[in-house]
């Protein structure tokens, strides 16, 4: 299985490497530039610029602004991925089929690839946040906000899980129509911006909707969603043609 993963990763990386470097660089540069703007400003932090999002109050007042940085941050992994998982499966499955790998194994490896890309994206972008924090802690944490170290770790973890969910949804759509697969994450993100549903798993990616009382429940729901869509993805991969 590990050898299969290594083999698939090399093909996967070949497809996404340019997009991966370009988009991660763009996000990192944006973080640094916004970090420079918030430098020595006690009322602003780079984390809140990215992840404040749209509060429930704002939705109820019907004067919603588009949280551009939040939207871009969560959409970019989808742009990096595009339909690359589908491409890897279709180009390699024929050859791997002859080596007695099952469709279930190929599907499981695809899910690991999705989690790797989610992890790589979250880690590299949060590494820049950490770097900014080392330079000036006020850029990340400031006395006038709710942000603290524990919240940042929680935020990074929940972002990793949510990005995994968004990318898996994208891959689910790609099983049927690879060219429009990015539509899935876009719809979910727009729905989150304009809908105050308190059980939406993306709520905790927005600091303005952060509710410490619902943390555990939302984390639990996120895990259930991950399990369900992973099972659905494996089922679809198993029951669809391999070419």
């Amino acid at each position: 299985m590990l050898r299969l993963l290594m083999n698939q990763w090399l093909f996967f990386f070949q497809i996404i490497k340019k997009r991966l470097f370009v988009f991660i660089s763009i996000v990192c540069i944006a973080e640094i530039l916004i970090g420079m703007q918030t430098f020595q400003n006690p009322n602003l932090s780079v984390i809140s610029q990215f992840f404040d999002g749209v509060s429930i109050m704002e939705i109820k007042s019907q004067q919603v602004h588009l949280p551009v940085l939040w939207f871009c941050y969560l959409l970019i992994p989808g742009l990096i991925l595009m339909n690359s998982i589908d491409q890897v499966t279709k180009s390699n499955s024929i050859k791997l089929r002859g080596l007695k790998f099952s469709t279930l194994e190929l599907g499981a490896v695809n899910l690991v690839l999705i989690s790797l890309i989610s992890l790589l994206y979250t880690c590299s972008t949060f590494l820049v946040f950490l770097l900014l924090f080392k330079i000036d802690p006020d850029i990340i944490l400031n006395p006038n906000s709710i942000i603290n170290n524990q919240l940042i770790i929680y935020l990074a973890s929940i972002l990793f899980l949510v990005i995994f969910v968004l990318l898996t949804v994208q891959c689910l759509i790609a099983v049927f129509e690879p060219r429009i697969s990015i539509v899935g994450p876009i719809i979910i993100l727009i729905y989150t911006i304009f809908n105050p549903n308190k059980w939406n798993i993306l709520n905790n990616t927005m600091l303005s909707r952060f509710n410490s009382q619902l943390n555990i429940q939302l984390l639990l729901i996120t895990m259930i969603v991950i399990f369900t869509i992973s099972a659905l993805y494996l089922y679809l991969i198993r029951s669809s043609d391999l070419t």
């Binding site: 090399l10 093909f11 070949q14 180009s91 390699n92 024929i94 050859k95 089929r97 002859g98 080596l99 007695k100 790998f101 099952s102 469709t103 279930l104 198993r238 029951s239 669809s240 043609d241 391999l242 070419t243």
Partner: peptide, 20 residues
């Protein structure tokens, strides 16, 4: 489709999949 292939087979169908 859902099962493992019964034997080992060498396959070339359509374009070869290669690491460039």
């Amino acid at each position: 489709v859902e099962n493992k292939y019964p034997i080992e087979a060498g396959i070339l169908i359509e374009n070869p999949s290669l690491i460039e």
